[in-house]
Amino acid sequence: MAFPHVSVLSLLVLSSFMVASAGNFYQDFDITWGDGRAKILNNGDLLTLNFDKASGSGFQSRNEYLFGKIDMQLKLVPGNSAGTVTAYYLSSKGSNWDEIDFEFLGNLSGDPYILHTNVFSQGKGNREQQFYLWFDPTADFHTYSILWNPQRIVFSVDGTPIREFKNMESKGVPFPKDQPMRIYSSLWNADDWATRGGVVKTDWSQAPFTASYRNFNANNACVRSTGSGTSSCNSNSASSNAWLSQELDSTSHDRLSWVQKNYMIYNYCSDTKRFPQGLPTECITS
């Protein structure tokens, strides 16, 4: 299978990865902090994060991924969630880290959540796009997906793409493609900035706050091999690795345009005051 726009180094790194398999929260994740506020329930099918005045909580994947289609269903903190942030993201380590972010910024009861997205490459971020959602994310579980392949990163909600970040290395824009990343999630207090720029503070009488997770799926992903035998993400079935070169079709482009026209509330590529010397290269390059 050909991998356009991928360096030889990327392919060498990729060759030390193997196709991921399905599991449950006991198998795939470690609770990393929270002093018992994070819990794995229902035989590993459900994970909950809790947050009170003393502490938030979080977890991370046991595996590291280099490219993948990562799905997770979340049900966010209900009611008055002002000041809270539920973060769900991929990240590598080090000072020149890569990162792909979903962050859900809580709000007063009846006001919409803000879905905050960002992409870091080689330690550089400042690529925020923010959206309202077209449903109540606290009433039920919804699927939040990251497609990350050598050509693009696509953020999707319930299968609807909301953002695409293309590989523009040929234009001098760094793209995450060489560093494996773990999946992280946390629920924590950010009332100094999360809700209306920090004007609305966390109402501790509503604590504990709870976010819930289920149906993690990384079947279409490449995982760092922990054994001596390694294999690439290639297989005998080309269709099983179609995600490695997947791009948006015309229907997906239409859905992306619909979301960005009706639900996008901030786009760094339109913020000329923030970039008085000129917009970032990826914003002006088709």
Rank of each mutant, 00 (worst) to 15 (best):
F3G: 08
P4H: 04
H5M: 14
V6S: 14
S10Y: 04
S10F: 08
L11F: 06
S15G: 13
S16Y: 12
M18Q: 13
S21L: 14
A22Y: 11
A22W: 07
Y26A: 01
D28T: 09
D28G: 02
T32C: 10
K39M: 00
I40M: 06
N42K: 15
N42Y: 09
G44Y: 07
N50C: 09
N50K: 10
D52N: 15
Q60R: 15
S61P: 09
S61G: 10
N63I: 01
L66G: 02
M72S: 02
Q73N: 14
L74I: 15
P78V: 11
G79S: 13
S81L: 04
G83L: 10
T84S: 11
T86R: 04
Y88A: 03
G94V: 08
D101G: 06
F102H: 08
E103T: 03
G106K: 01
L108A: 08
D111N: 10
H116K: 13
H116G: 03
S121C: 10
S121A: 15
G123I: 07
G123Y: 03
G125E: 06
N126W: 04
N126R: 14
R127P: 01
R127G: 06
E128C: 00
Q129T: 11
F141E: 09
L147T: 03
N149G: 10
P150E: 02
Q151S: 15
I153L: 02
S156D: 08
G159R: 06
G159Q: 03
M168D: 07
E169C: 06
S170A: 05
D178Q: 12
M181V: 01
M181C: 01
R182W: 08
I183H: 11
W188L: 06
A194R: 00
R196A: 15
G197A: 15
G198D: 07
V199R: 15
V199G: 00
T202L: 13
F209H: 07
T210C: 04
T210G: 02
A211S: 15
Y213E: 01
N215Q: 05
N219S: 14
N220Q: 13
N220P: 01
C222I: 04
S228F: 14
G229Q: 08
N234G: 08
N236M: 09
S237N: 14
S237Y: 12
E247I: 10
E247F: 06
S250K: 12
R255T: 10
W258E: 00
V259Y: 10
Q260I: 01
N262Q: 10
M264Q: 13
Y268S: 15
S270D: 13
T272P: 02
F275P: 00
T281N: 05
I284P: 01
T285I: 08
